[in-house]
Design a binder for these strands. Structure first.
Length: 843
DNA sequence: GTGCATCGATTTC
DNA sequence: GTCGGACGGATTCGG
DNA sequence: CCGAATCCGTCCGACGAAATCGATGCAC
């Protein structure tokens, strides 16, 4: 049926198209329902009702529809990839975010930011050195007192907002005192506030500002009416000029409150737009849109040449800016209906659904339609959203925080005023943690939102909790620089050490009904990628075990030799709809944690307990499932040996874990530490390489180089052969300085002795006079790089994994760079040729 | 129209 | 994956 | 003892190699 509608929408005039798509899936039906002239809904009441209904539907669907079924998603969707998550903002590019900076905004951005901007603009180097922090903070507080009023200015027409500065100043001055006081006394507390952990003075001050929330100043639409996309775009724009997290959070909190108070049905699409997702990760819906298609669409929408748009993109490094400028100069013949949050989002979903022949054309059409209907700031944010990079300093964690705060503030007064057991800041903090926990254990806004609106926020974890079949965000580990740091951090606590296998994270769910689901690190459904695992794991369950969730690393494995294979081998496995018979690369699971066993959620249990649960839940089967090699020791030398052993066994190093720690989903917790050889100073593979080219930077690297092309030296033919690009390891300041230095070495064409891939041509070439020392984790056979070509592989060259700059080698010339032969030798050495047994015998 | 190469997008690390 | 920058909170330092 | 300096965790967004998959373009 959606096909029909789609066809209609394509030919219909925009207004009708928007209407059609607004009705398209049940999401929009929900929105529409909430939008019915319910006449001034009692704040959250009406909308909550609408969403409550959806919550029930969702729960039902989850129960009946089975594992990870997204109640909102069309039932014909199959698992696949996920939408991008990253959203970002340039700190110092903030000034030129999207629109021409408005006078009022520049003021409101605050002293600190203003200064920084200026420093960044003219002065490379010591930007942050100057302004004393305390003064900046004070001024910030003054100005933020009027943030609420400011938001409204942006709405209607983007250019309309210049409030009387004098008045602002007056208001702020008046507010300054109570604010200061607030910091000291925890406002709203009768009893002296119990010190809440994690709540600082900043959070208290921020909480106090919530009193200024003014719905009428924010909401330009009537209660129950669809939320205009312009509102969201204006919020984004404001956020983009802000760098303080509290301030960003509050801006979004206010926006969410406005939606909650008027049209709560639009909250779900709004949240999805904020986090730049189109569906939960495990639902497998992707936009299938990248820079290339966006450039095409933008060219079409503005009637300009593609090259020109592409060129402007290269120059400005931001498609959003290109779109904004393009639209600004284009006249529309007749006024189009404004974009709505719900309709924009449903168009995004439609784009994600579009596939097959001519799908790109269709997608471009949809995008074009959005662009043509967009005004002011909107096209810029539409482009960025489709790119998957909002770049405004707002991403998932902050959205969750704002969501929690908004729900508490907007709805808490009713149901939760009775149990005010702390300061406002404390309760906000608690709500935030509850919501983040809920989301990490059940990463789906489709499930989270309805539950949030249906129940008191502090009970959200009772309703949105871990359940087998829905992936948990995996716990991550923190990098360390050496064994001493590990011992330092874990002094006084018991810890254990495990191999860090070089494969792919696999969260294996075995459900009571026998079904198996396997999720990736990013909660993608990988079940279809690993039918072999799905088949074998149930056989390995210990007698009596009915359901279990394992945390594992899936590693390519040579069953004949009983040997771990490198990551590059694993990556050649097919990904979609794999048939067991077609599998060429065997995989062995290395299990290291157990999150759930026979109805018991183990996330909050200590590692010791989870580990024994693991050992009791499944049995080892060489080549199919093994327990991660582990050892418990606090001896420096012993750990050093173990680290060497792990590397010899073909793993990346060690993970060190405290034995009493719980499983902390999605946290790069200090309870798990990564110990890799290449982290150690002076250890690991380093290369001296010539810098022979560069690419222009994007986003916060706009205006300079973003990455560089590196080459090693082949003395026989006297060639410089590319080995890698590099884009990290330098500070911003250093990057500017290096760019400056290299700019002088630009040559119009590559030297005849440069050997590089035809598909890897940099924006500018350099005379090879600069040598850098670069560190890497590994070497790999490369389809594009030319280093040591012919020495290891008959035609392919060698590249490096995870390259980063260590230091500049002023003392070296290009001829002194690492030689091709050395690179080849390093590659040969790293290839693991030893079996497990051999390694084990040695230690 | 079919098969193959290429490009772009997405994903893993 | 690596890395650096900005913030915010907690802890330590110095007058 | 208080304010300043410092340390540390969190969040965000620059950027890396390399693989598959899907759509499209091209040769035949």
């Amino acid at each position: 049926m959606k096909r029909l509608r789609k066809a209609e929408a394509e030919d219909a005039p925009l207004k009708e198209a928007a209407a059609a798509s607004a009705l398209e899936d049940d999401l929009e039906e929900g929105a529409a329902a909430a939008a019915e002239p319910e006449e001034a809904p009692e704040v959250a009441g009406a909308g909550a009702g609408a969403l409550e209904a959806r919550a029930d539907a969702a729960e039902l669907a989850a129960v009946h529809g089975g594992a990870g079924t997204d109640p909102i998603e069309d039932s014909d969707e199959e698992g696949a990839a996920a939408p991008p998550q990253a959203i970002a903002a340039p700190r110092k590019a903030k000034g030129k975010a999207m629109a021409a900076p408005k006078p009022a905004k520049v003021k409101a951005t605050g002293l600190a930011a203003g200064q920084k901007k200026a420093a960044a603009a003219k002065g490379k180097g010591r930007a942050a050195a100057g302004s004393p922090a305390p003064a900046a903070v004070k001024d910030e507080l003054l100005i933020e007192g009027v943030a609420g009023g400011q938001a409204s200015e942006d709405e209607g027409s983007p250019d309309a907002g210049d409030a009387a500065e004098g008045e602002e100043a007056g208001v702020s001055a008046a507010k300054a005192k109570p604010l200061k006081k607030a910091i000291l006394t925890y406002p709203g507390d009768k009893a002296p506030a119990v010190k809440v952990e994690g709540v600082g003075t900043g959070a208290v001050a921020a909480a106090a500002l919530h009193e200024d929330f003014n719905l009428d100043a924010l909401a330009t639409w009537a209660p129950g009416k669809p939320v205009p996309f312009a509102f969201l775009a204006a919020t984004f724009e404001e956020i983009s000029s802000e760098s303080k997290r509290h301030a960003i959070t509050r801006l979004l909190t206010n926006a969410i409150r406005a939606i909650l108070a008027t049209t709560p049905g639009d909250l779900l699409p709004a949240i999805y737009l904020c986090v730049n997702q189109v569906a939960p990760s495990h639902a497998g819906t992707e936009l299938g849109i990248g820079d290339a298609i966006l450039v095409k669409a933008l060219a079409e929408a503005t009637g300009r040449a593609r090259d020109k748009v592409q060129h402007e993109y290269s120059e400005s490094g931001d498609l959003g800016v290109v779109a904004f400028n393009a639209r600004a100069t284009q006249r529309t013949m007749f006024p189009l209906p404004p974009l709505m949050v719900a309709s924009v989002f449903s168009t995004f979903r439609e784009i994600a659904r579009t596939e097959g022949t001519k799908s790109q054309e269709k997608k471009i059409k949809l995008i074009t339609k959005l662009l043509v209907a967009s005004k002011g700031i909107e096209p810029g944010y539409i482009m960025r959203a489709l790119q998957g990079k909002l770049r405004i300093g707002l991403a998932e964690q902050t959205v969750l925080a704002a969501l929690a705060q908004a729900v508490l503030l907007e709805r808490g007064s009713k149901s939760e005023s009775s149990n005010r057991d702390g300061s406002l800041a404390g309760r906000l903090q608690a709500a935030e943690q509850a919501v983040k926990l809920a989301y990490s254990q059940c990463p789906s806004y489709d499930l989270l939102l309805p539950a949030l609106l249906a129940h008191p926020i502090m009970e959200v974890n009772e309703h949105v909790a871990f359940q087998p079949g829905v992936p948990v965000k995996p716990m991550l580990a923190k990098a360390t620089t050496g064994i001493t740091e590990v011992l330092d951090k874990f002094a006084g606590t018991d810890f254990t050490v495990e191999y860090k296998y070089d494969g792919e994270r696999a969260q294996v769910h075995v459900l009571e009904d026998g079904r198996v689901a396997i999720y990736s690190r990013n909660s993608e459904d990988n079940t279809k990628k690993y039918p072999d695992i799905a088949a074998s794991v149930p056989r390995l369950l210990q007698p009596g075990v009915r359901s279990v969730v394992l945390d594992c690393e899936a590693v390519a494995f040579d069953r004949e030799e009983g040997k771990i294979l490198p990551f590059q081998v694993l990556s050649t496995r097919a990904r979609k709809d794999v048939k067991v018979a077609d599998i060429k690369v065997q995989v062995c699971l290395f299990a290291f944690d157990c999150l759930y066993l026979d109805g018991r959620v183990l996330l909050q249990r200590p590692l010791t307990e989870r580990r024994s649960a693991l050992y009791s839940a499944v049995s080892e089967q060489p080549g199919e499932l093994l327990f991660a090699t582990a050892k418990t020791s606090a001896d420096v030398e012993e750990l050093g040996l173990f680290l060497n052993e792990s590397v010899a066994a073909g793993t990346e190093g060690l993970i060190v874990k405290t034995l009493d720690s719980t499983y902390e989903p999605s946290r790069r917790s200090a309870h798990w530490l990564k110990l890799k050889k290449d982290y150690l100073e002076g250890v690991g593979d380093t290369f001296d390489v010539a810098v022979i080219g560069a690419w222009l930077g994007k986003g916060k690297r706009t205006g300079g180089y973003g990455s560089f092309l590196l080459a090693v030296y082949e003395p026989g033919e006297e060639e410089l052969q590319t080995i890698s690009k590099i884009g990290t390891g330098f500070s911003e300041e250093q990057l500017v300085q290096l760019s400056e230095q290299l700019k002088a070495l630009v040559i119009p064409a590559p030297k005849p002795y440069y050997r590089y891939g035809e598909t890897l041509v940099p924006d500018v070439w350099f005379d090879a006079k600069v040598v850098w020392e670069v560190k890497a984790a590994d070497l790999s056979i490369s389809p594009v790089h030319r280093a040591a070509a012919g020495l290891v592989d008959p035609t392919k060259g060698i590249s490096i994994r995870f390259p980063r700059l260590v230091r500049v080698r002023d003392d070296k010339a290009a001829e002194d760079a690492t030689s091709a032969e050395q690179v080849a030798e390093m590659y040969r050495k790293q290839v693991s040729t030893r079996t497990y047994k051999e390694v084990a015998e040695d230690y």
